[in-house]
């Protein structure tokens, strides 16, 4: 395949960036998108140029490091697929591909396609956990969890924290990310004691990080490599309303 790339290049957080065009000949359709970028980078380095910086790690769609807005879609054109699992056979020979970083006020660009997603960690810090210090647990089977509840919790817990929901949302909202953790823990009996406190402080933190609000466009669900449902957002709102009207301290 012979492709043309237009890639966002930005030397540092404070520098101004721009889209730069690259010619990418001899690309195998069996390459993953990131392997294609590896090849482009090798060629850049052989010419003495700086390679394109991008986040990646496991390359099997589970660590959530990889990002990339590809032709205007978070993680590219393939549904339920992170960028690292996207293969070049999803593109046409001769195509021009735009590659941009996630864009949100809460995700400042660090360099090229690398952004700072630590806001998501701080949302978890605010309450995305069950307070169970090591050592005090009772026997695991003493807590019965109906299979339906365990399955629903697992559906939400599949979130890889990549931030595609924020990137895809026209409002740059982190609602799907936040709601998936709230749903995961809220479906389980272990998560009940802190359920109200959790939703209040996580939502509050989401606002402090300056993410947008949810308009239920549904773009997040479509972009999510783990296909997490916007049902979780509805659930979060329900929890928030109950807690907000009764428990706010």
């Amino acid at each position: 395949m012979h492709l043309r790339l237009r890639v966002w290049r930005q030397a540092s957080a404070t520098a101004t960036g721009k889209l730069v065009e690259y010619d990418a000949p001899n690309i195998s359709p069996d390459m993953s998108f990131l392997e294609m970028l590896d090849v482009v980078n090798e060629r850049l380095m052989e010419k003495g140029d700086d390679p394109i910086a991008f986040d990646h790690d496991c390359r099997e769609g589970i660590c959530g490091s990889c990002s990339l807005m590809i032709n205007g879609a978070a993680h590219g054109p393939m549904k339920a697929t992170a960028t690292c699992q996207l293969h070049m056979r999803s593109f046409r020979d001769g195509e021009t591909i735009d590659v941009e970083p996630w864009r949100a006020k809460a995700f400042p660009v660090i360099r090229d396609l690398v952004v700072d997603r630590s806001a998501l960690d701080r949302i978890i810090q605010a309450g995305g956990f069950i307070s169970a210090a090591t050592g005090g647990a009772q026997d695991a089977n003493a807590i019965l969890v109906p299979k339906t509840a365990a399955d629903a919790a697992m559906d939400a817990a599949a979130c890889i924290g990549c931030g595609a929901c924020v990137a895809a949302c026209p409002n740059a909202s982190a609602s799907l990310f936040t709601a998936s953790k709230i749903s995961h823990l809220g479906h389980l009996p272990q998560g009940q004691p802190e359920r109200r406190r959790r939703v209040l402080s996580m939502v509050n933190q989401m606002e402090l990080e300056e993410f947008g609000g949810c308009t239920l466009y549904g773009e997040c669900q479509e972009a999510c490599p783990k296909e997490i449902s916007i049902d979780t957002i509805s659930r979060m709102n329900g929890d928030f309303i109950r807690a907000g009207l009764t428990d706010w301290r």
Binding site: D98, R103, F211, G212, Q221
Partner: peptide, 13 residues
């Protein structure tokens, strides 16, 4: 929440 938009943005759904 998004001071700088995308050059290329395709609404999906």
């Amino acid at each position: 929440a998004r001071p700088m938009g995308y050059v290329d943005r395709e609404p999906q759904v």
